[in-house]
Design a protein around this nucleic acid. Sequence first.
RNA 1: GUGGCUAUGGUGUAACGGUUAACACUGGAGCUUGUGGAGCUCUCGAUCAGGGUUCGAUUCCCUGUAGUCACCCCA
Length: 406
Amino acid sequence: MSVIDPYKGVRDFYPEDERIQKHIFGAMRRASESFGYEEYNASVLESTELYTAKSSEEIVNEQTYTFTDRGDRSVTLRPEMTPTVARMVASRKRELGFPLRWYSIQNFFRYERPQRGRLREFWQLNADLFGVTGLEADAEVIALAYRVMMELGASEDDFLIKIGSRSALNAELVRRNIPTGNHKKIASLMDRKGKIPEDEYEDEMNALAGGTFEIHESPDITETRRRLALLGITNTVFNPEIIRGFDYYTGIVFEVFDTNPENKRSMFGGGRYDNLVGQYGSEEVPAVGFAMGDVIARDFLETHNLMPTLNPATHLYLAPASGSDSENVALVADTLRKSDVNVAVGMKHEKIGDHIKVALKLNIPHFAVYGEKEKESGTLTIKTLATSSEQTLPLSDVPAFLFTVH
RNA sequence: GUGGCUAUGGUGUAACGGUUAACACUGGAGCUUGUGGAGCUCUCGAUCAGGGUUCGAUUCCCUGUAGUCACCCCA
């Protein structure tokens, strides 16, 4: 609209928005690290070839931010993390220790028409476990996804983990002698089942597979669900329609659904992809992973009323009793900072009432005045703004008070 | 990429095609001099952009832009 608006499809994060991001990322980070996943990172810029090798031309040409740099190299803003992490694992395969557990929380760019829940820049948790073929890896990754939901404050009733199997589908396709050339299309079609009219689905399936067919719960799914149940994770279900649209999945696939009747939809998912790392030049490395976006997490918190009150990092607003006290206030604030208290000092305003207004506007939880009285007594009167309660205590006790009262 | 709907101060709303675009909140200034989160007074601030119709457009039409919804797609 004008230069003061953000670029199309991207968001500004004002402090109150950024607090929400930090809250969500904190839950993702705690969950990931509790399973022993280590954070990694890479540049948002990647060589375009990284994607042309793996993705279809159409996706790279039409749905990425791709440009030529001053050295005539084709550069793409990363649209996903998987090629990057696969590249990183492939290039150091011999010196990395497996099982390798990695996570990242980063931003991605896709050139798409923006609408609610789908923007041109979004943030995403990627968690991947490399080097394990067994189902204990599939179960762990799903358990981690579950853990992220719990860290966000969800209860088991709020979501349902639907599990399917690419390998079961592939086996069925082979058993039915369906040409491999049609496998990808069939997977894509099954992924869309439920979104398209039934007769249309049947017609297309007839053309591709010579008739519709059912997949039944396969042993790998049963075993994965059993392992999850051992951990108390029982909100899982086999669902033959969980296929995921992408052809690089090779085994267990899953999607986490919101159970809210007004918002029944797939929130995020993942699965096993054993053949991808090998495409970046080294030997095969089996892998299981999932990705969860910030927008879906935020929607979930809002629809389930799980968004907590989020205060800024500032603990205390310290106002001078009068303009002449501002130097002493700076000194006292500095003392408190050495005890890890985050202090914003009052400036500009003369009246204490105005200082209180500012502290409230900024959502700073505690307020105090410093002037002659406090200087003589060596105390501070801490006002907790949410409750209006006050507590007078020696300066040296202030940090402990702020950290416990919170 | 296709189609529908929408666009008024920082925010939320109002204005039959017709004087100076109204109201609330927010912001700023002032009164109240150590806890005044309030009140009162004053005040800054907008018709998305560009065309067209008309004596006259915030209002009607077209194009663009942006938002939103449904497709497409969803790594």
